[in-house]
Design a binder for these strands. Structure first.
Lengths: 148, 148
DNA sequence: TCCTCAATTGAAAATGATTTTCATTACCAA
DNA sequence: TTGGTAATGAAAATCATTTTCAATTGAGGA
């Protein structure tokens, strides 16, 4: 959260090395507001680092998700999509998915109310099922203005 | 909702034929409370109808989702999972996913509060983005009691 | 009940995302 | 600077899902 390459420490702390592919992917994702797929990330990084392989993209994305820096989403188009985790740079938000054209809108209305509900649910469910809740995903599906 | 084979009318109404594979898949899903994958559905139906092919399973599942009889989920294990749509036989509910063992718990606590919030969000978002909302999915992720 | 014909099906091949393998490369602590 | 190990890239392997296409079958009309 502090200047460029703030994540260097994050890697060190976990015993991971800070390599060019990892930096490139993180930088790319912190500059975009889109929900990129592995292929799209590959294409973008490939432009500035042609030696990179798709395999590394997948491996790095897994690692970053596991480290909590990224979030992985399924919007129903057959591939996973990634964005920086909330708190890293973006606000907490959820998604509106157009089931016709696949357009995705980020929204953060009602976050207060939502967080309240989520908190209640989390408390109740962790007691009832002895389930330790780490995260949640909320998505709305429908038809966007263009597709109507 | 009225006795066995109530869905016969549903098919007729859409101009679809009521075939054995379609009946078998619907019957299977209305008897289980699990979230079955295409392969699992194939195995189960294969026992009572060995001639069935995996292709038909996939096609039928797509059709039933499109008809609104089933819901399709992604719980992060690399395959889609299906259950009867809410209102058909089950109550409205959401899912708790164990990220370690993949166990899925259905819960329906706080449905009232949730529906209220969802209604608010839907109203606001359809106005703000001129987005016609059809459905939503809410999932919680964490560690189940066994995996702790 | 029988016929016709488009809807449906099944097998096999194709697709496409993701993972594995393995030899090579490159961080980084000492 | 160097050694050891984590990380990488290319190619092959996996695996869920889709497509192709010829054969089959449900259902309305004769």
């Amino acid at each position: 959260m502090s200047g460029p390459h703030w994540w260097r420490h994050r890697f060190r702390g976990c015993g991971y090395r800070l390599t060019f592919p990892r930096q490139a992917i993180l930088e790319l994702l912190s500059k975009t507001s889109k929900h990129l797929s592995a292929k799209e990330i590959y294409s973008a990084v490939h432009k500035i680092y042609p030696a990179i392989g798709l395999t590394t993209i997948y491996r790095t994305l897994d690692l970053l998700v596991q480290m909590g820096l990224l979030k992985k989403f399924d919007f129903g188009d057959g591939q996973s999509r990634y964005e920086l985790a909330s708190g890293i740079k973006k606000n907490h938000h959820h998604h509106l998915v157009c089931v016709k054209c696949g357009k995705i809108i980020d929204y953060d209305d009602f976050v207060k109310e939502e967080i309240e509900l989520v908190k209640k649910v989390e408390e109740a469910l962790s007691k009832k099922y002895n389930f330790e809740i780490k995260d949640h995903k909320i998505q709305f599906y429908g038809i966007c203005s263009k597709c109507k």
